[in-house]
Design a protein around this nucleic acid. Structure first.
Lengths: 172, 172
DNA sequence: GCAAAGTAGTTGAACGCTCAGCTGATGAGT
DNA sequence: ACTCATCAGCTGAGCGTTCAACTACTTTGC
């Protein structure tokens, strides 16, 4: 027997449009970022989160959660960006398991240099194709999905530091 | 001077929600597919396109375009799936540069076995979190983005074979 | 105190994707 | 016919991601 809740035609159409939009938007944005700044989206997002954090500092695990990335990914990425001089790692004074990632001035400079073209590509890919009403609808639907998938757990879309702070107070 | 068309707060919020929604949805779907069927989304999509094509056959370039993938990606992917016995390659009789990818019965079986859980994961990730109105809005916004990014070029979201057929008539 | 369970982060292998460069076929211009 | 540009597809190197260990530290329960 077949319990599968198959998609009807309308759902199928929605899913394929969503899929196509995703691929087209992120391909474009990723390519532009790679060409212009030589870094993948994931790295950019890590830099953004760090730049917004107090003291430009975040614990690895907080960074991972806030950038929606696995710990492993962040580990590898930060290692690479540390080689490049964009980030330095310091150990956390209150929990010796912890590591703090700190955005350097160099890293901040790289981010600021990359931002204008990145933002432009996002605007071209998403906002230039939408009416204000469609934009509002997209926001609402996206937030509904995020809320649903983050389960009961709150999920700070605007990057604040969560209910219990950055996990390790910025030591500077 | 600074010509950058920065995002205002509302646009920023929309973009971050869109970004988060996509990461969460595709992470979930990809993981489920990988765990259940041992294949990435990109492979699944290739199999779907082939299964819908007349004679379960498509030229490599048509396959790439229809799956929104680069030719290189399709080349690598088909090579791997050919090793697995899911696809066979045959040369195109009318254009000796061309290659036809044909879905085998084994491949069709793998696809059919993978489909139920994949569809279920899509439903859980997307539709279970949306009201019907939100779903309709998401479809409209996604299609607007797709239309915008595909430029003037038509883009068959529903996988038909395009204005001039599969490019190489299915020879069977 | 001390063992057991849980948490933070790292590491290396496997793998898919991208990019650039390549072969070989086709089509247009002369 | 002959050249040159274009197109279809393949290939290998490089890179980022994932997954499954693994180390080190912390917390819980006794």
């Amino acid at each position: 027997m077949d319990h599968t809740r198959w998609l009807d035609d309308e759902e199928q159409r929605t899913w394929r449009a969503f899929l196509a939009a995703h691929r087209l938007v992120f391909d474009k944005v990723e390519r532009r970022l790679q060409a212009g700044a030589g870094m993948p989206q994931a790295y950019y997002e890590i830099l953004v989160r760090l730049s917004e954090a107090p003291g430009r500092t975040l614990r690895m695990s907080v960074l991972a959660e806030s950038a929606l990335a696995s710990r492993s990914r962040v580990s590898h990425a930060v290692a690479r960006m540390e080689e490049a001089g964009w980030i330095v790692r310091r150990s956390c004074p209150t929990d010796r398991r912890g590591q703090l990632a700190v955005l350097t001035d160099t890293g901040m400079g790289v981010l600021e240099a990359a931002a204008p073209d990145h933002v432009e590509s996002v605007r071209e890919a998403v906002f230039d194709g939408l009416t204000p009403a469609q934009q509002a609808a997209l926001q609402e639907a996206s937030e509904a999905i995020v809320t649903h998938l983050s389960d009961g757990a709150e999920w700070p879309v605007t990057g604040d530091s969560g209910p219990d702070g950055p996990g390790c107070p910025q030591a500077s």
